[in-house]
């Protein structure tokens, strides 16, 4: 078929023109810039892994998997194991997730479900977010000088009254799992609260109407409709909170007691990978660097795995809650 538009001219007075070479170049360099930023991020992560791995490799060869399953850390005898640290990291983070998670989700519900007027909710939200701005070391000091003295009578009363319960099987002498857990809970609270608030706020009004239209009370609407609908985002907030708890260093190094032992007791001192690294590195001899790098790799792998699994589950659940 002949192209009947071949001789057609643009409308008289039309200002349409193709982009200039400069405009195309601008567009292209912008694309290259963003691509470079993206690639750089990936390379940085790979580089960190590679470098850390290289530093840890001799220790990995020397101590093997036994490193992960023994408790002793004795530079004089060249015996190294991080079971207590792995346990302490996971246990403290899990406990913090339990308390901080419940608290954070409750705060998010309180701030988004019309319990407060908009102004007051805004103020509350600001206060909760300010918790995230407090430096870790300040939390540590607060824990040592305020929290531990405050909870010690209660902890020791629990120990004396219910010593047969594994969680209360030791006395709280000072630093230990319990104060560490409380501070860690407060530290992850803003993360959990902020992200689950976003999830609650993203629920369309029509879903809330549907719930109330069925004749739910406020609590029934929240429990049976709002929370399930926001579950993907709530889960994301918990994963990110857990990730934050795993890597938290300063406050834990100050509060957990740094004792190499595996115990269920909330009141006994314990240790974590991050606090091992922070407290041992400054005075570490050459023979300790390898094992410490090995421990750093383990911490990195744990946090990466948590974030990775979390992202996968999040994607899976959010696909189901698209509205």
């Amino acid at each position: 078929m002949a192209d009947k538009t071949k001789n057609a001219e643009p409308k008289v007075g039309s200002v349409s023109r193709p982009p200039t070479a400069f405009e195309y170049g601008y567009d292209k360099s912008f694309r290259i810039l963003t691509l470079a930023a993206g690639v750089l991020t990936v390379l940085l992560l790979v580089y960190i892994f590679w470098k850390l791995g290289a530093l840890a490799a001799p220790a990995m060869r020397e101590y093997g998997l036994g490193f992960l399953t023994t408790v002793e850390w004795n530079p004089n005898k060249n015996e190294y194991g991080i079971l207590a640290e792995i346990w302490g990291t996971l246990y403290s983070s899990f406990l913090a997730l339990l308390f901080g998670g419940v608290l954070g989700i409750s705060v998010a519900i309180f701030l988004t479900q019309g319990f407060l007027n908009a102004r007051l909710a805004w103020v509350f939200r600001l206060i909760v977010e300010m918790l995230a701005a407090i430096p870790s070391v300040v939390y540590g000091l607060w824990g040592i000088y305020v929290l531990i003295p405050a909870i010690r009578p209660m902890a020791n009363w629990l120990h004396e009254t219910l010593p047969f319960i594994p969680f209360f099987s030791t006395k709280l002498a000072g630093p230990g799992m319990f104060p560490a857990m409380i501070v860690l809970s407060i530290m992850i609270l803003p993360t959990v609260a902020a992200i689950s608030q976003d999830a609650f706020k993203a629920i369309p009004m029509k879903i809330q109407e549907a719930a109330y239209g069925m004749g739910t009370t406020k609590w029934e609407a929240i429990r049976k409709v709002i929370i399930p609908t926001a579950s993907g985002g709530i889960f994301a907030s918990l994963v990110l909170g857990f990730g934050r708890a795993l890597g938290e260093t300063m406050a834990l190094a100050m509060l957990i007691g740094n004792a190499q032992q595996v115990s269920l007791s909330l009141f006994s001192p314990a240790t974590t990978l991050a606090s091992l690294l922070a407290s041992t590195f400054p005075e570490a001899g050459a023979n300790q660097i390898g094992p410490l790098m090995y421990a750093a790799v383990v911490l990195l792998v744990i946090t990466m795995a948590v974030n990775f699994i979390g992202t996968i589950i999040m994607n899976y659940t959010s696909r189901q809650t698209v509205t």
């Binding site: 369309p204 029509k206 879903i207 109407e209 549907a210 719930a211 239209g213 409709v225 399930p228 609908t229 189901q320 809650t321 509205t323």
Partner: peptide, 8 residues
């Protein structure tokens, strides 16, 4: 309602 609003 106006908009279909089944629960997730």
């Amino acid at each position: 309602f106006q908009q279909p609003n089944p629960f997730s």
